[in-house]
Write a protein that binds this DNA or RNA. Structure first.
Lengths: 241, 241
DNA sequence: ATATTAATGTCTCACTTTGTTACAATAATG
DNA sequence: CATTATTGTAACAAAGTGAGACATTAATAT
């Protein structure tokens, strides 16, 4: 049974989430498709009266991916009048057989706060919400046409991710705990959308003093086995001299 | 007469603005003081149902400074439950002699979207709003104690300003149209909170190729007159996806 | 008129960071 | 045990930055 009672939620505020995953080569994001509408959208939702904004976001993502303890980064609030499309919303809600009395408030104008998150592609247990037929990974250059301003939201998320890549050591959540330099480089290349020189990249990242080197990897490939690295926890980072 | 009718405004959403100005040496921001309360706060307000979020912000700042056509940068939405302080709000509204029926909705929990702006210190015509005794410039290191989470909002604004300084050529609005290299350096120093080497700074900024050099300045100072510069107009770059 | 003063514009040199190329090391394969 | 493909790192070139030196010059003092 779908619960979207008007009295539980703050009207006019919503969130949208851009969930990035990495398949080893491409950056992908989670997109859902609403019942019988051919409408694709970012996973989003509403905020309860007695709930922190960030908790609403976490709740929505946990319901759809099973993941908890994800790192979110808020990147923009979208507040233009023109972004709301009551007819589109109405169609979605009718196709999901929600009754008019309970969905009426959802046709209002909403200001939406957008977050992105970076998760380990393989950990996800995808679960469509009540309004959706499916939720799936889409590569950034193979996105379906998205409803409302969601395309703009995605572009802004990617831009922020690129801007933050250096500062926030963003690869952290897109990779397994231990990874090779090559894997990390692939993450950087996927995020930045450009190739990086191997030796320069390696030298730069080692100089940053945020990686911990472990034993060798036995990948079964016919060449020298690369080291495995993991990210140092912030505490264990010692100053470079 | 104060107009804050519940039916005009979206409940639960507000904005706050951190307006930076520069007096040649220090960065300052605008802070208002509510009637008879000794409470200091950032200039903020509410969003009308039929109004873009950014237009609400511009409206509020124009009413208080007389300034139009300011560049705003949205930097964060503050959405925790704990940020709301209904007792504080009640006191402010009572001291301003607003009647309970019309202010009741303002005691709700609000999610606030915060913007900063950079303006020319001298152009401002300060005008307290209906709830306030005064609106004034305060240097960042001489701020009074601020209500609610406004201190945190200021700190985040400053952090974002610092992060964006290089990318967005932020000095643009803190200086008159034409300025000397020294003046620009003072802006950088005030924003970053540290001294910069003159020669390196000059070389770096000229290398960025964003400054246009004009005729010399006749400052009446007993030394070689510096060049005047202005910012070249830039075409915005769209992110690739 | 001319020397003085002090901030500016630019140059140099050392040092650091980044780009590029080269090459030795080595796990799996046959 | 040689081959293959990839890795780790060294070496050198190119570009960028920190620090200092110095000539230039508008106003002022002489």
């Amino acid at each position: 049974m779908i619960e979207l009672k008007r009295e539980d939620y703050i009207p006019n505020i919503s969130y949208d989430s851009v969930i990035f995953g990495f398949n080893g080569t491409q950056l992908k994001i989670l997109i859902l498709e609403y019942h019988n509408t051919n409408l694709f959208a970012l996973p989003g939702g509403f905020v309860k009266y007695n709930e922190n904004l960030i908790d609403a976001v976490k709740r929505g993502v946990k319901e759809r991916t099973g993941l908890d303890n994800i790192y979110f980064e808020q990147f923009h609030a979208f507040g233009s009048l023109s972004r709301s499309e009551p007819q589109t919303m109405k169609r979605i809600l009718e196709e999901a057989n929600i009754d008019k009395a309970s969905y009426d408030w959802m046709l209002n104008r909403f200001i939406s706060v957008a977050y992105y998150a970076l998760i380990n592609y393989d950990d996800v247990n995808l679960e469509p919400d009540a309004l959706s037929d499916s939720i799936n990974w889409y590569a950034l250059d193979e996105l379906p046409s998205l409803m409302m301003d969601h395309r703009e939201i995605v572009e802004r998320a990617l831009q922020t991710l690129r801007d933050n890549l250096e500062k926030k050591l963003v690869g952290m959540n897109l990779l397994p705990e231990k990874f090779t330099m090559k894997q990390l480089q692939k993450v950087y290349e996927a995020v930045l959308g450009e190739n990086i020189r191997r030796t320069t990249f390696q030298r730069r990242l080692l100089a940053m003093n945020v990686l911990e080197r472990h034993e060798k990897l036995f990948q079964g490939k016919a060449h020298k086995a690369p080291y495995l690295y993991s990210f140092k926890t912030r505490k264990s980072i010692k100053p470079n001299i």
